[in-house]
Amino acid sequence: MSAFSPLVFSGVQPTGNLQLGNYLGAIRKFVALQESHDCIFCVVDLHALTAQLVHKDLKDQTRSIAAAFIASGIDPKKHIVFNQSAVPGHAELAWIFNCVARIGWMNRMTQFKDKAGKDRENASLGLLAYPSLMAADILLYRGTHVPVGDDQKQHLELARDIAQKFNSDFSERIAAAGLGVEMMMGEEKVNGYFPLTEPLIEGPAPRVMSLRDGTKKMSKSDPSDLSRINMTDDSDTIARKFRKAKTDPAPLPETIEGLAGRPEADNLVGIFAALADRTRQDVISEYGGRQFSEFKPVLADLAVTVLEPISAEMRRLMADPAHIDAILRDGAARANVIAERTMTDVKEIIGFV
């Protein structure tokens, strides 16, 4: 019995315009991963319903995420780019996993507690079951690795729990059908159908904060457009937003320790480091002691150099929605081949006629 073939799965939810934090924290890492792994990149439009049921522009938002993938450098021919709802296996396997997962597991998910708040009785069942669908997204393709941020680590652990329980509950049928794959559980070798997916953590993700308030994360939902760099902003808009970014009156510190208690300075140094692919220490070594009136124009020029080609390509792609739709259809067809194979096996294991 051979080991699982390495496969990376990751998805982005189409809720609002993508901003700089999404690019630096996720999409740029996706582009790097495709050089070393087989990858499936999904626009998770089913997940979007847990945040808001009725969307005015879900189609455009879905196309925007796909455009960002492609404009950033993801190759949709070499890898798979598609939208989740186009492959029925996601919802089908999610239902099975709803029956595998335990209510106690779901109630422990901190993201559900945060998003549901005090009015948990009015939260949708979809919000509670969100991690089960996420597990299905990954395991439908028997994904072995997922790039995750801090907010999704617990969900990936739950996906592993679901895979382990399925493998254990159906161990005899998996073996009888010859569908088991050898894997390690701790120090023990076992056979199972679904892999215990591993997180891909490639260094700390840059924490990109608001340009108007360095104590808050940059967000596409912030009412002030000046608080964020949208991935569709043109070069003049990018430069203007950095020039207007909030700062304190003191010059940049000459040591990393000097950034403590200065959230706006810390944020701009972190953004510069991430865009330049340098360390924060490098940035401080070069610009420490300078006024923000010197530093912000340099940061703005760097941001325009890195981001404007991506935003221009996104705008070009978004002007031709039929082309994006064709890419998504092709990706969905290729994803569905893998998904149907998995669902055929799962139905055999469970005992569906």
Rank of each mutant, 00 (worst) to 15 (best):
S285L: 13
V298L: 12
T344Q: 03
A101K: 05
E340H: 14
L196K: 00
A101I: 06
H55M: 12
I201H: 15
K118H: 10
M109K: 01
F112V: 08
D234G: 11
Y141T: 06
L139N: 02
I350K: 05
F30T: 01
G126V: 11
S85E: 10
Q281C: 06
E254D: 06
A94Q: 14
L226Q: 13
R228S: 13
D320V: 14
E340Q: 11
R142E: 05
S72F: 04
G149C: 11
E348D: 10
L211V: 09
T62F: 15
N107I: 05
P88W: 08
R207A: 14
G351D: 03
S293C: 02
A91C: 10
A326E: 09
K77S: 14
P249L: 08
I327Y: 00
A274D: 00
S132T: 13
M134T: 02
S285T: 14
T232S: 14
K153V: 08
C39F: 05
V298G: 04
K296M: 07
K220L: 12
A339G: 05
L53K: 15
R329E: 15
Q152R: 01
R102C: 10
L7K: 03
G21L: 04
G149F: 12
N98F: 09
Y23E: 02
W95G: 12
K118M: 05
I229A: 06
G178S: 09
E182K: 13
L268D: 09
S5Y: 14
D233Y: 00
A205Q: 05
E35D: 15
I324A: 00
F82V: 10
S285I: 07
Q34C: 12
I310L: 08
A250C: 13
R329Y: 14
E254I: 01
K78N: 12
N122R: 15
G25K: 01
K216I: 13
P263N: 01
K153Y: 13
L33G: 01
K241N: 10
L211T: 09
